[in-house]
Amino acid sequence: MGMLPEYRPDQGEWLCGRCKIPLEQGKVPVFYLNSAFDVILPRCPQCGFTLVPKSLAQGKMLEVESLLEEK
């Protein structure tokens, strides 16, 4: 869509614990209540481990979660 939100680690330089290789920014779909959203996050190119920075979890994710929940 040409407007993918991208999140980098809040700070630091990161290695995958399992594969011992640096995380790279990569596109990944995330899911919630029958909706899917694309986002670019730090990922391990080998095993797919994906890091969700705190700023994303407590920012946009929280907003979108509460928008979709009929609480």
Partner: peptide, 22 residues
């Protein structure tokens, strides 16, 4: 921190499995 959204590759399950299922 925590979130409810399901992010493939975070939380234990294999990323590709999650993506295919969802």
């Amino acid at each position: 921190w925590c979130h409810r959204m399901l992010v493939p590759g975070a939380g234990g399950e294999d990323a590709e499995t999650v993506i295919a299922r969802e």
